[in-house]
C-alpha cells in the first residue's frame, strides 16, 4: 500500500506472447480503473510489448535476435501461431467480438497512469537501447526497484 493508503498492483511481464501480454494489460488497466497505483515491469521477451517497430542490436547476435523480436502489434499467441496465421486469426476473432486490441489496451494503460518500467539487464543482454522503447516508458530499472515495488504492492503477478 502507498503511504497515502492507495492500494498498489505490480505486474512482471516476462512473456512476449500475445495472449499473455493481453492478460497483463487487461489486469493492469482494470487495476488502475479500480483505483490502484499500478506498475508493469517488462523483462526479457516482455520487452517486445514496449518496443518500437524497428531493428535493434549492435553486434552479430544482437542483430540476429532482432529479426525475431516484434512490437506489440506483431507478437504472436503462445499456442497455434502457425507462422503468423494464429496471430491474424486471434486478432480477427477479438475484433469481431468487440475486444479491445493490444495496442489500444497499452495506450489505455498509459492514459490511466500505469507506470511502465523496463528491465535494464535484459535490455543490455538483448542489445535493446532506451531509444528502441516507446517514449512512454517511465524508467529503465533493475530488480531491486521491482522488489521494492512488489514489497509495497497488494497484488503482484508474474506473467
Amino acid at each position: 500500500m502507498s503511504e497515502n493508503g492507495t492500494k498498489r498492483a505490480s505486474i512482471v511481464v516476462f512473456s512476449g506472447d500475445m495472449d499473455r501480454v493481453m492478460a497483463a494489460f487487461i489486469i493492469a488497466t482494470t487495476a488502475a480503473a479500480m483505483g490502484m497505483e499500478t506498475s508493469m515491469f517488462f523483462t526479457f521477451w516482455g520487452l517486445q510489448a514496449i518496443k518500437k517497430k524497428k531493428g535493434t542490436g549492435k553486434g552479430l547476435f544482437g542483430r540476429m535476435l532482432s529479426m525475431f523480436l516484434k512490437d506489440i502489434d506483431g507478437v504472436g499467441p503462445s499456442k497455434l501461431n502457425m507462422g503468423g496465421m494464429g496471430r491474424w486469426m486471434f486478432k480477427k476473432m477479438m475484433k469481431d467480438k468487440g475486444v479491445t486490441s493490444l495496442p489500444e489496451l497499452r495506450q489505455m494503460a498509459i492514459d490511466m497512469g500505469v507506470k511502465l518500467l523496463a528491465c535494464q539487464m535484459s535490455m543490455d543482454v538483448m542489445e535493446i537501447d532506451r531509444e528502441d522503447l516507446i517514449d512512454e516508458v517511465a524508467d529503465v530499472v533493475g530488480a531491486a526497484t521491482y522488489v521494492l515495488e512488489a514489497q509495497q504492492a497488494d497484488i503482484t503477478l508474474f506473467i
Partner: peptide, 14 residues
Amino acid sequence: RGLQCPMPVVKTSQ
C-alpha cells in the same frame, strides 16, 4: 454496449 472486458469498467472509471 458492445464493449468487452475490461472496457465497461475502464470507461466507467473514466
